[in-house]
């Protein structure tokens, strides 16, 4: 199969670079933690490689029997989005668990403060 059309390659390269620098800028401004940026950076780097290396996409397309090469770019992009979303679902689950523990802790602390205040009232 012919390599990726040049226009597609250029557009995809620009899009990958925008994603990569966008993620790095968010980390620099402390809007995104390094921990959660790593998966996005991996996504951007893989897409960048596939965009620049025009033979790679057509090679994968031939191996998979895909008739229109650049479809592989979409497929890889979609796969990474799924992985990122799944990762975020686990992160949200962990955050939910922590919120529950925090709420329970606050309730327990309020009860203890209440008890201490009552103890003071009865002394005075």
């Amino acid at each position: 199969m012919a390599p990726t059309p040049l226009a597609v390659s250029i557009a995809a390269t620009i899009a990958s670079l925008v994603l990569l620098f966008g993620v790095l800028e968010l980390v620099r401004r402390r809007r995104l933690r390094e921990k959660y940026a790593l998966l996005w950076i991996l996504t951007a780097v893989v897409l960048l490689i596939l965009s620049v290396w025009r033979g790679a996409v057509s090679g994968i397309a031939t191996a998979l029997g895909v008739s229109y090469g650049p479809t592989v770019l979409f497929a890889v992009g979609a796969l990474f989005i799924l992985v990122v979303l799944l990762h975020y679902s686990t992160v949200i689950s962990a955050l939910t668990d922590r919120t529950v523990v925090l709420a329970q802790k606050v309730a327990s602390l309020e009860q203890r403060i209440d008890e201490l205040e009552r103890g003071q009232d009865s002394e005075s």
């Binding site: 790095l24 980390v27 620099r28 402390r30 390094e34 921990k35 940026a37 790593l38 950076i41």
Partner: peptide, 12 residues
């Protein structure tokens, strides 16, 4: 992770 943090830290 640490390399990323160190390099980005330079620009903060």
């Amino acid at each position: 992770k640490v390399t990323l943090a160190l390099v980005i830290g330079l620009f903060r």
